[in-house]
Amino acid sequence: MTAIAIVRLKDLFPLIMLSGIYSLLSSGFFVTMDAVDVAFTEAAVGAGISTLLLLVAITMTGRTEHPVRHKPILALVVVTITGGLLIYGTLDMPIFGSAQAPVHLHVAPRYINDSMQEVGVPNIVTSVLASYRGFDTFGEVVVIFTAGIGVLALLSVVPRPVTVAKINSLNHLLHEQHLILRIVSKTLLPFIMLFALYVQFHGDYGPGGGFQAGVIFAAAIILYTMLFGMITARRVINQSLIQVLAAIGVLLYGSIGVVSLLNGKNFLDYSILAGDPVAGQHLGILLIELGVGITVTSVMIIIFFNFAGRREYLQHLKKNNEGNNDTSC
């Protein structure tokens, strides 16, 4: 399997490619296990965004791994013992695929049997995600938002002001290279974005939802940034606007909860939002999925922009240092 190759490789570049393939394979596995929503997310996140982020990171850290000096035998022993104990533990687990396993007997029957009457959304995963366990999902969104803030705090640099003339000359220069790539991806971009919106608003009926849509939308913008350069992308996408949007997504989610609270129901109980409870649930799910989508998109864009911006900044520093050395000699 791919994972074993990952252990052996010293060069980080093929390593990252392999980890992308590994993600794609595992998303294929999720499809065979009937978890279409999960497969969708894994394919977009694991094979797309995380591979990209790792690649940007190694451009700054160097791509070879130094050979380990200490003996890995101790680690191997620890790992084998842990694995052995866990395999011993699996012997008590119910047989794979058994419908009588305890997992399927607790809350799942309620979700499967009643969610059509209570929530009225065909995709059970969406109704559990957004309605039954809406509070959990709110927590997850806050975690993503916090990670975005963390990256911002660790890596943010103030972009240097760039003159219009410089941008034009840069654009001219870039037009010469990667012409085919640029034209093809320029044609693809609107479709990627349209697909993201479809995934966003069709999450009630098919696989999809705010998390996947957010990642796909962010991927479209990252593709644009990679092909047209940071400077152009910064002019198209306002950094501070994106930061405000990330917060607005979380606030939208939270405020839906507060609205239902003020109307005398529980936090995030949407049945009050419209006259008919099922319609209220629909509206609530749509709105919070929108909140999730906005936050995920903005956080992914923030993360990528800060990684790429840092890289630019470091190159700038290096160039300045070299310039200083030249004058001193």
Partner: peptide, 30 residues
Amino acid sequence: YSNPLPHVLILTAIVVGIATTALGLALTLR
């Protein structure tokens, strides 16, 4: 149908996972 609850948990875990990975990479860069 297969059980939807683990799907929900893992769906969100994947996206949280990428966010924390990004944070880890940011720390590595620093």
